[in-house]
Amino acid sequence: MIRNLARDVGAFTSNVFFVTGETTALVDAGANFDLVARLDEHLDDLDRLYLTHTHPDHVENVAAVRDAFGVETWGYDTDSEYVDNAIEDGESVPIGDDEYEALFTPGHSPDHLCFYAEETGVCFAGDLVFANGSFGRTDLEGGDRPTLVESIRYLHDVVDGGLSALYVGHGPSVTERPLDDVEIALQASQMG
């Protein structure tokens, strides 16, 4: 089961996906709300915390989650204080009951990852793409529009034909025709 623990938070935060199964995991930690209290409602133990990238709105709650659950974090750049274990492009990681392929997708940030489970068609897209064809901004430090376009193309090529659900860093998840949203993002990101 995938549940967004930040769904009704009024403050600025990223979505925080809690995935149950063989490997109980979080995808991103969010900011500006008490994530530990929300986790305490659902579990006694947490196996892993994955980070799509280390912008503040995705990592502010990392320290509290580490302290409360003794969990290590996984992300692209171990030079970041938020990342304990490196994940390489193409590496397989367990989330819930499935194996996800890590896709290195910089452009919004230089350390951005998406996670895609080919068997189920589920993708955690972070801030690469969003519902309705929106895509991550590139005006923050480390952002680069041409790199973002290539990353969206990479995601599109990997998920083409198999995408069933897109869980994004902000806003609603896409569970109906999610490949359409990725294609619109690819087209729109190439303009301007």
Rank of each mutant, 00 (worst) to 15 (best):
R3W: 14
R3T: 13
R3Q: 15
L5N: 12
D8I: 08
V9S: 15
T13E: 09
T13H: 08
S14E: 05
S14I: 02
N15Q: 07
F17M: 13
F17C: 06
F17E: 12
V19H: 14
E22A: 12
T23L: 06
A25N: 11
G30K: 11
A31D: 11
F33M: 10
D34C: 04
L35E: 08
V36A: 05
V36K: 04
A37D: 14
H42V: 10
D45E: 14
R48A: 15
L51Y: 13
L51K: 11
L51S: 10
T52A: 14
T52D: 07
H53F: 02
T54V: 15
P56S: 02
H58E: 13
H58V: 10
N61H: 05
N61K: 01
V62P: 02
A63L: 07
V65W: 06
D67H: 14
A68Y: 00
A68N: 02
F69M: 09
F69H: 11
V71C: 09
V71L: 08
Y76Q: 15
T78W: 12
S80V: 07
D84A: 04
D84E: 05
A86C: 11
A86P: 10
A86H: 12
I87F: 13
I87Q: 14
V93Y: 14
V93R: 15
P94W: 03
D98E: 15
Y100N: 12
Y100H: 15
A102H: 14
P106G: 07
P106K: 06
P106Q: 04
P106E: 02
P110G: 04
H112A: 10
L113C: 12
F115R: 10
F115C: 12
E118L: 08
C123T: 09
A125L: 06
A125W: 02
G126Q: 03
D127I: 01
V129A: 02
F130C: 10
F130A: 09
N132G: 11
N132H: 15
G133A: 05
S134M: 08
T138M: 05
D139P: 01
E141Q: 05
G142L: 00
G142R: 05
D144K: 03
R145L: 10
L148F: 05
L148T: 04
V149C: 06
E150S: 13
S151T: 03
L155W: 00
L155K: 00
V158P: 04
V159L: 00
G161N: 00
L163M: 09
L166P: 04
Y167R: 04
G169E: 02
H170C: 03
G171K: 04
V174Y: 05
T175C: 05
R177A: 11
R177S: 09
P178D: 00
L179P: 02
A185D: 03
A185R: 01
L186F: 03
L186H: 01
Q187C: 00
A188T: 07
S189K: 06
Q190W: 04
M191I: 07
G192E: 15
G192F: 07
G192R: 09
